[in-house]
Design a protein around this nucleic acid. Sequence first.
DNA 1: TATGAATGAGGCTTCATTCAT
DNA 2: TATGAATGAAGCCTCATTCAT
Lengths: 206, 206, 206, 206
Amino acid sequence: MGKLEVNKRHKESSLLNTAFEFFTTKGFSKTSISDIVGNAGVAKGTFYLYFKDKYDIRNKLICHKSSQLFRTAVQELESAPDFQTMSFEDRILYIIDNIVTQLAENQALLTFIAKNLSWGVFKTALTTPVTEEDINFADVYHAMLDEAPYEFKDPEIMLFLIVELVSGACYSAILYKDPCDLETLKPHLYETIRMMIRTHQGPEKH
Amino acid sequence: MGKLEVNKRHKESSLLNTAFEFFTTKGFSKTSISDIVGNAGVAKGTFYLYFKDKYDIRNKLICHKSSQLFRTAVQELESAPDFQTMSFEDRILYIIDNIVTQLAENQALLTFIAKNLSWGVFKTALTTPVTEEDINFADVYHAMLDEAPYEFKDPEIMLFLIVELVSGACYSAILYKDPCDLETLKPHLYETIRMMIRTHQGPEKH
Amino acid sequence: MGKLEVNKRHKESSLLNTAFEFFTTKGFSKTSISDIVGNAGVAKGTFYLYFKDKYDIRNKLICHKSSQLFRTAVQELESAPDFQTMSFEDRILYIIDNIVTQLAENQALLTFIAKNLSWGVFKTALTTPVTEEDINFADVYHAMLDEAPYEFKDPEIMLFLIVELVSGACYSAILYKDPCDLETLKPHLYETIRMMIRTHQGPEKH
Amino acid sequence: MGKLEVNKRHKESSLLNTAFEFFTTKGFSKTSISDIVGNAGVAKGTFYLYFKDKYDIRNKLICHKSSQLFRTAVQELESAPDFQTMSFEDRILYIIDNIVTQLAENQALLTFIAKNLSWGVFKTALTTPVTEEDINFADVYHAMLDEAPYEFKDPEIMLFLIVELVSGACYSAILYKDPCDLETLKPHLYETIRMMIRTHQGPEKH
DNA sequence: TATGAATGAGGCTTCATTCAT
DNA sequence: TATGAATGAAGCCTCATTCAT
């Protein structure tokens, strides 16, 4: 049993890895199932045992990869030396900066995620972990809100606006340095985010 | 009939119109050249006399359509009764609201533009008019800045951030009402934009 | 539940039933082994323990189903109140009418049998029973001939001609009401059959 | 123009001929489009310029081939030395015998037609000629009826019964010599047909 | 007996593009 | 300019069958 299970897991992740490789280099629509199975060392038909079609594997990849991104950021935040004393605002910015840095270092991933991300997929990704290691960012976010000394008005909309702003802005700045490079953009971006948070900040909790 | 007549004289615009129709209904990759030429009443080969390939016609459409969007917004702004007395901030928001409204009323257009827009294409679109009627929004924007009583720091970055925020946020709110519908989003969005503008506001001009 | 229980005990008949269901609804070539085993609640490999391949299960079904058709007809004939006094001709027509009625009420079966029947398969079906209940129609036919007061010339050819005529004619009349519906056809058909029998009728037995 | 037209006709008939060759040797379902285009010396895509799909080319072939069969039979009938003096019955039997002979000499054609013929397709085939040479057998049949000295009751049903009888019976006799070979069958078959005609014969025309 | 993951050939069809007219 | 027949690579997916467990 164990053997078979392991073998299956192995094939599936082999397909996922290969697909990611191709999607980020050739692009989704120019990647064929043949490309994937060929490099994964698996027969064509086998692909369809694990994924419904090309769209299915793409969605699973997006979920998995964005989840990883957040997991890494949250882990690093929590192991930061001054984590305990950081304010809500600082924590959010820490996470954002961490993710932005990850993306700047992995532009293929940025391209892949950005071209295929929508808030809907994103929310799913951060809410329903695919593998055991994937985290549920929604929970983390709420925990952060609970720890904050202030109430927040419409925290979900706030998060939404931040995510849209960051993802759009970074895409262009990182990949095309247009209208400016990432380092130039950061102050503007982070300043804007701080203000967005403050705007949604409500009264102090009693 | 008129249609045929017009086709004869303006095959190019007939192709553009038909392509737009298909791109917004079936999507770009599921639209074939056959679809386009068939409905445009033109032969296959003729397509290639006007456009290099499928990507070419798409890009031209994006440019043209986004330009139209801005032209309409600017025109309506300028014919607003209180135009003269509106502040820079109000004018920007007027334009944004106008465009958002146009997109909410034309979701096919929204889908088409959003899926294919990047800051690069966008800047091109607003800088290099395709047809004679197309405006150069960059010029308009600079004129607005000139008329403002304040200096602005990095006005291009400011515009960039605004555009990214608005386009991302509206896409989700209009098409999926997620995380909230457009009307619910607007106050948050516009408030954020006002703050972004103020943040970039410099000293009064002398 | 009963179904699962029964499946466990009679996987073969479960496969036969499911296959029949699919063959008569989707057609033979569009039915896959997956369809069959999936709905029969059996593993893929198990199929091949009972049948050589797809053709094998089809042939077994045809044999079984046509045998059933004749068995029912013969049973009803024999339990008819006036069975003892019926002439050979009447008995043959009784059987034919009974079968035609069964087929008219079960058009899926008609389609299935007609599309896949040939005289060869048919003869096998009526000669070599598959299950214990299946009858050997050849024996029944010869018994009927023996009881008749006349000799018959080439009775096998006669039967052959009748079967070909009936099967072809009914297929079209029942399924497509073309060139006429079944009830309109019957008088012509039965009259023709009576004449065919008389033509093959020889001298009275001594 | 002429040149192009001729070229097109050429390709189409090349495809038809090749398809017929494969359908009659390998069978319909085992013949692939690749087989056809490969041997026709045409590109895959070209196939779809002339036929909707495999079923389309099959139907066109059936129509054409059965029409040819009848055309040949009717032509030979009309050039028979005693044509003028032949009775209606004799003429029908002449045509049948001619067709049966053609099929006995071309068993591939017999297999192809028999496996794919239904009264519906058949009627279409004999009513709506595909090429200019194809005849309309319905017209011929009615002309023959008109010339006969007798009225006929339900002549269409009569023809239907004859066709079903002949096609079923010959298929088995020619291809499998089962239950007897063609020559043995003929007397029975033709005798039956004569009787069927007489049964449908009405009063003499005045 | 029973399983079901794996296979991989092969099916059908689409489509951007070319080129002779 | 304009045509549209022809191309043929490439795409996606299905499926009967096997075999290690």
